[in-house]
Design a protein around this nucleic acid. Structure first.
Lengths: 205, 205
DNA sequence: GTCTATAAATCGATAGAC
DNA sequence: GTCTATCGATTTATAGAC
């Protein structure tokens, strides 16, 4: 089976290259403005060849989303179990902001129905999303019990807020302004997310 | 000139109806998924008639953006001059969240270049945007001097953050969940925006 | 599996009659 | 100005040769 395994390896490498292109184009232009011709040109193969690997444009986007979710799950998994929940939440949020500032966070319009159907129909996607959400949700409840997150906030509000920060346009605006480094932008946005805009007596480190 | 004035009135009413439809469809599906056929059908006129009023799809979107910006400028103007700057900022933010929850906040993709060109080429749009930004910017600096907003935050970060909250997907997610009233959602999101997720000793009213 | 070529559908925009 | 009908361009997806 060595030859078969090798063939599969080659196939997987090619598909990885495709997904990488899709990921980048999705982050750059969004789903609607990304064309399949563009993806094919970026990968360096013919469009018809693309359709041998993925059944549709929606399937391409779904594969990119699964990849980023898998990476997110890895980051979640990599957090030391003994660390405070708030630190783990902040670490994952920082990672998402880093990815976004690197121009590698694929963003999908929540309005597109054909895309929504494809995503919700993909077990690989929904399972990963559930897994990550459950982990973050547990940390949120823990952080609230620890007194590090306002216990009066519904956990789902906190979860949605963190997810939204991963796609927030603010880092991109600040980066376009050119006055701050990526690291500074991440810290500023982390501050407005967890500490708000209001002045506080004791500033978080 | 009475007849001419009357004709202009009729024209204006029709164009208002067009812009109202565009505004709603823009909020519902976004620019790329909104089709001109759809707008024409929603208004109840033929597509060719639409093009007698507006030169392009981009011009339609720009008109909707000008309308919402004009309304925003009105809200800004309506704030009592003597009120604390932080209260004025919160009032405008609340208004934006209300509009968004009502499904009437038109959102434009910042990536679409043809749309960007049309908007930046429209003096009505850029002038209004500058006017609103300047007013909010002055209030932000004042609120920082008053100690109500963290003075270490760059004012542009605060401005971008407030603008982004007006288009944030979080209120829509919470509304879709169906567990909270619109008023509750507005207050919760206002809290995470100004006070952050972190627990604080003295909770804001 | 990869290519060229093209089908099929959609959409923005316009022509021309009234 | 409003309509019907259509153009022209773009885009997703596929057929068929190699």
């Amino acid at each position: 089976m060595a030859r078969g395994a090798f063939r599969e390896q080659v196939l997987k490498v090619r598909e990885d290259a495709i997904i990488a292109s899709v990921n980048r184009l999705l982050a750059e232009k969004g789903f609607d403005l990304m064309t399949v011709d563009e993806v094919a040109a970026d990968v360096g193969i013919a469009k018809a060849s693309l359709y041998k690997h993925f059944a549709s444009k929606e399937a391409l986007a779904a594969a990119a989303m699964v990849r980023v979710l898998r990476k997110a799950a890895d980051i979640v998994e990599a957090q030391p179990a003994a660390a405070p929940a708030i630190d783990k939440l902040k670490a994952v949020t920082r990672w998402a902001l880093d990815v976004q500032l690197a121009g590698e966070m694929p963003t999908l319009p929540s309005q597109n129905s054909s895309l929504r159907a494809e995503l919700l129909g993909s077990a690989a996607y929904t399972d990963l999303l559930t897994h990550v959400s459950d982990q973050l949700g547990a940390w949120i409840v823990k952080a609230q019990a620890d007194g590090d997150i306002d216990p009066s906030l519904p956990p789902e509000l906190v979860l949605f807020t963190l997810f939204s920060r991963a796609c927030d346009p603010v880092p991109g605006f600040l980066k376009a302004g050119g006055r701050y480094t990526d690291a500074q932008i991440v810290e500023m946005v982390m501050g407005t997310c967890f500490d708000g805009l209001r002045r506080r007596p004791e500033q978080a480190s």
